[in-house]
Amino acid sequence: MNQPLLQIEHLTVRFDAFTAIDDLSLTVPARSVRVLIGPNGAGKSTLLDAIIGRVRPAAGRIVFKGRDLTHLPEHRIVRAGICRKFQAPGLLDSLTVHDNLVVAEARSRRWPALLRTQPTAAQAGRIDGILATVGLTAERHRPAGRLAHGQKQWLEIGMVVASGAELLLLDEPAAGMSLGEREQTADLLQRLADRHSLLVIDHDMAFVERLGAPVSVLHAGRLLKEGSLQDVRQDPQVRAVYLGRVDECEYDYA
């Protein structure tokens, strides 16, 4: 019953001589939010890459709901229930907002959907719900490429939700957003946590604080510290790792 949703066991990822992830272990419980922070090059994005099969680990295992995903092809990992939002929004620019969500929707992946011109009633209902959740109902007929930057981020979050995944990996979901948009995004993620588990990468401490979730600090491919944002901030090792960035963390956005 208490089996975690995602277990990362002794994961190592190497790029030639460089070890991006070094014997890292991490668990994500069901219906929880976990934030990954760490300086540039700490291996945050590489960890997400490894989970979704974009890079293959040199050692270790990735277990999702008791199933070893380490060597599955990328699309099977998504079908198992993990979907990722990339750092730079990866939208299907010439399709409309609505059609981006149709492509993302889980049932569109099945063969009988291929020749259908309209989504089924059930799909349409889900897509309308997601449009409302991410606040893009009014933009549904616009090509995704013409959205404002913040809206693009929300659309991609919506697509990740539409994929039917239980575990959402969100790589800097609030990057490039205004203060108000960042707050809206944090609230959105908290709402999503009712039904999903979230693993979120972000640099913005005010955003992380608003999420109110436990934080894991990565450094040089290893897990440095886990705990609440307060605990982590006061940790001398974490402060040392961030060095000049400490000031930024403490005051800039707070």
Binding site: R54, V78, C83, F86, V103, A104, R109
Partner: peptide, 13 residues
């Protein structure tokens, strides 16, 4: 065409 990787990481081969 727009984003083969995005489509792949939405669960399509």
């Amino acid at each position: 065409r727009d984003g083969e990787n995005r489509v792949r990481f939405l669960g399509y081969n």
